[in-house]
Simulated scan of single mutants.
Amino acid sequence: MENALPDRTTPAVAVVGARYDPVTVAGRIARIDADLRWLQRRLSGSVRTVGYRSDGTAISTTIPPASGSHRMLLIEQRARLLGELGHWRKVREWQIAAGRIQDHGPATISPGDSVKIRGRWHRVLGTYHRTLRIDGGGGRARAVAYRMVSDHAPGDEESVD
């Protein structure tokens, strides 16, 4: 006899799988890092260059350090984000240790290699500190963050779509 009830675990497994996808985890870590930098600038104050005069001198605006209840709110947000960052970095370390993903960077990828991004292979044209330049097809090159790389093949070992 068939079960008349729908399988409710399949959507839950898909949601958890997407939440812990290596590219998603790396993106979440990058976003939390950026949020923490923004909070630090608000907590300690900062100077921002908004333009330049014709004589070359900078036009700047000064953002004073947060104070009062707003400062307390920012401190609470920073504490929460630091906890989240610790969790997602542990998840990322587990993924690397389990072999689900490799920690790619300029030391592991070179021009001429092939990388898999969003299911397609691309030839690497150049590597930089945070990004790599790939052949985007049609003679166009584009920059992609290392966190988007899901697989890597050195040299000409892998076919390129």
Rank of each mutant, 00 (worst) to 15 (best):
T127S: 09
R133I: 14
W121G: 00
V91T: 13
V47K: 12
S69D: 15
M1C: 11
R41G: 15
R100C: 06
L82S: 10
V149F: 05
T57R: 12
L85T: 03
G119V: 00
T127K: 04
E157W: 04
V25P: 00
L5R: 11
L82A: 12
W88Q: 10
T10W: 04
D55R: 02
D55N: 15
R37G: 09
H152S: 02
N3S: 08
S46D: 14
H122G: 02
I101E: 03
S67C: 03
V144W: 13
V160S: 04
H122M: 07
A14L: 14
S69F: 01
G138H: 09
R133S: 13
S110K: 14
D35C: 04
G45I: 03
V124E: 02
G68V: 04
V47H: 08
R100M: 05
T131P: 05
L5W: 07
D151I: 00
E84Q: 13
G112V: 01
I32L: 06
A26K: 02
E76C: 07
P106K: 07
L39N: 12
A26R: 15
R92K: 12
S54M: 04
V144A: 12
T24H: 04
G27Y: 00
A34T: 00
G155K: 01
G99H: 04
T62G: 03
L82M: 10
D156G: 10
P22L: 10
G137A: 10
V144N: 10
V47G: 03
R80W: 01
D7P: 10
Y20Q: 11
I96S: 02
G105P: 11
T57M: 13
